[in-house]
Amino acid sequence: MPPAIETVDLVKEYGDLRALQELSLTVEEGEFFGLLGPNGAGKTTFINTLVGLVRKTGGEARVFGHDVESEYQEARDAIGLAPQEFNVDRFFPIKEVLQHKAGYHGVPEAEAEKRADEVLKRVGIYDKRNERFDWLSGGMKRRLLLARALVTDPDLLILDEPTAGVDVQLRHDLWELVTELNDEGTTILLTTHYIEEAERLCDRVAIMNEGRKVTVATPDELKERGTDTISVRLESSVSTSVAADLETDLDAYAHEVSTAGDTLEVRVDDGGSTAPRLLNDLEARGYEIADLEISRTSLEEIFVDMTRSEDRTVTRSSASSADEGTDTDTDTGADDGAVETEQEGVA
């Protein structure tokens, strides 16, 4: 079975601006895949390339093995898209909007009406079925976008920031619904700014920045790439000069040592396995330890580290010079080499 999404060296240029840079990504059938990245990272451009709203400049893109340009009908038939924008037909009541959309996908009229009712019930706005889109509240509009994506019974559901600006209850409702869909076998591609959302829902996530893929990993793998902080409270306070001395002494495993009153904070790769050694080293140096706490780097901090870079516009010329000098996928601005970059086309 071909992957749900497969892109190879996908490029999109807007004049001199490169929105996607040799992006190679694979999403397997049945996966719940997250696409993370700051604004302007190219997430929506990537999605729109798959559904035909953006024409690629180069590379390949396939949906369930169908090329998005030469076999666009098959590719589009497999996709249900809930976009960021409220791009809904304002002329008709929402139920008819859904019937039309199902019809465009070849669903006969009677079946389309039945499906429209079903998805409106599923997203919880059935009682608004005769209203026009403009009369719905913000949360209901978001639900309708999801209903419209579902009415065609897609094999691949693409959700472009579906929970942006929605209240907590709706966010949880949406999470529950998309999890159900994924459990039923629908492949899901989710873009989001909310790290918690990706961590909670996704089997794997890709982090994008400036049109490039920075990395692809499971949320747990990503978190393992971050550093931990061991906070050691001592019986007596320590001076700041001690921190510098300790950083030298503990150089073998400590990335950074800082002090705050009677607490030492030591940043290490793996807090759990390093803590006993740290305690021994401190006791050997005469420190009396009162308490110890280990905190892991959050996925959000890792994400920020990975996407931290200079504010620069990527152009064809700058991309070319980057290509000449370095591997494109490694030019990520990632911190301290902590990010394991993807060298292969397949994630």
Partner: peptide, 14 residues
């Protein structure tokens, strides 16, 4: 203008 033509454009219609 209102981008709802996307409903058609993203469909499998030729």
């Amino acid at each position: 203008w209102n981008e709802y033509i996307h409903e058609t454009l993203t469909s499998p219609l030729s």
